[in-house]
Simulated assay, not measured.
Amino acid sequence: MSKPRSLRLPPRTRAYRLRTARQEFAVLDAAPAGRSRGTVLLVPGFTGSKEDFLGLLEPLGDAGYRAVAVDGRGQFESPGPRRRAGYTPRALGGDVLAQVAALGDGPVHLVGHSFGGFVARSAARLDPSAFLSLTLLASGPGRVGPDQRAKIRLLRAALPVLPPSWVWAVTQWLDSRDPAYLADPPEIAEFLARRWFSTQPAQLIATGRQLRIEPDRTEGLAALPLPIHVAYGDGESVWTVGELAHLARSVDARHTVIRGAEHSPNVSHPEELTAALAEFWAGVTARTTAP
């Protein structure tokens, strides 16, 4: 999961519930500094939330973009169904299209982090005309690697039969066994627990299953009529860097590797990631406005 380093709301940012034709979604909406160069919709990953993008909102605004980060259905502060059937790829992709329509700034640049990349590409398949571009941030072509699959299998088995507090305690213990583990500051630890207990268990079970079984979607991505950007850190571990590099080549995508970053460049390297995104989007704009 991504862990924000601060919960401070950046300048020019509003937190509110976005009313759409499907339901309301909790969002963080950051206005651009000066004239707008476009709107960006940011979709978080498994066990994540809109706060995963807090570090990106200010630099994206400074670069001239309205940046909107969203909690998906059943995720943290957005309501969602209690049944797993409510979290199909089509349903989640349809939510993104409803969010774009409600923002009123479409088409938008779409960015999906990790599992959010699965959601983003599902939305792009449903209606590519809603988007100017698609960025897959630390998001692979298909299912996650074996170590991650084992962790998700344990989580999915425990959630239906154990109290949420027990499952949370186990996940915290597993995280602490990582040699690179560092204890979170109290404010962040409290936020992570609150996010966990606010997220619908059905959302975690259904999306976790998709991460474990998702087939390779390279061919479908290559067929999308959208400019694609594949970006990740050189320390990526949920998918291998080889898989992600192959994906970028296979779909003729813009390819960005952020040195020193791991699975969440949006948290650890927001300035470098913003520079790469803005350069990609400027190229997209140049192509679409050329005579």
Rank of each mutant, 00 (worst) to 15 (best):
residue 32 P to I: 10
residue 258 I to D: 03
residue 29 D to G: 08
residue 30 A to L: 10
residue 14 R to E: 15
residue 249 R to I: 00
residue 220 G to H: 12
residue 14 R to W: 02
residue 265 P to D: 07
residue 208 G to P: 06
residue 232 Y to W: 14
residue 86 G to S: 12
residue 171 T to S: 07
residue 82 R to N: 14
residue 12 R to M: 11
residue 150 A to W: 08
residue 10 P to Y: 09
residue 116 G to Y: 11
residue 277 L to K: 15
residue 2 S to A: 15
residue 48 G to M: 02
residue 89 P to M: 13
residue 98 A to H: 04
residue 103 L to A: 02
residue 90 R to G: 08
residue 203 Q to Y: 09
residue 146 P to C: 07
residue 136 L to H: 04
residue 122 S to F: 01
residue 258 I to C: 03
residue 57 L to W: 02
residue 3 K to P: 00
residue 138 A to M: 03
residue 204 L to K: 05
residue 224 L to M: 03
residue 141 P to R: 11
residue 183 A to S: 13
residue 170 V to N: 04
residue 269 H to R: 15
residue 261 A to D: 07
residue 104 G to L: 13
residue 144 V to W: 01
residue 89 P to Q: 13
residue 36 S to K: 07
residue 241 V to A: 12
residue 288 T to Y: 12
residue 110 L to C: 01
residue 22 R to M: 01
residue 72 G to R: 12
residue 97 L to V: 05
residue 174 L to C: 04
residue 251 V to P: 03
residue 45 G to W: 04
residue 149 R to C: 13
residue 198 S to C: 06
residue 59 P to M: 09
residue 273 L to W: 02
residue 275 A to Y: 01
residue 229 H to P: 01
residue 221 L to F: 11
residue 20 T to N: 00
residue 138 A to I: 03
residue 286 A to M: 08
residue 268 S to Y: 07
residue 282 A to C: 01
residue 82 R to K: 13
residue 150 A to V: 13
residue 205 I to R: 13
residue 288 T to L: 14
residue 168 W to Y: 15
residue 183 A to W: 04
residue 115 F to T: 10
residue 54 L to A: 03
residue 210 Q to C: 02
residue 202 A to D: 08
residue 278 A to P: 04
residue 5 R to D: 12
residue 116 G to M: 12
residue 171 T to Q: 14
residue 78 S to N: 15
residue 288 T to V: 12
residue 190 E to M: 08
residue 288 T to A: 14
residue 118 F to I: 15
residue 289 T to V: 14
residue 167 V to C: 07
residue 148 Q to G: 07
residue 227 P to Y: 06
residue 217 R to N: 10
residue 99 Q to E: 14
residue 81 P to V: 06
residue 282 A to H: 10
residue 60 L to W: 14
residue 139 S to P: 11
residue 164 P to S: 13
residue 229 H to Q: 13
residue 83 R to P: 05
residue 264 S to L: 05
residue 56 L to I: 06
residue 256 T to M: 01
residue 123 A to M: 06
residue 74 G to R: 07
residue 291 P to C: 02
residue 57 L to Y: 06
residue 145 G to W: 04
residue 71 D to V: 01
residue 172 Q to A: 09
residue 54 L to P: 00
residue 57 L to R: 03
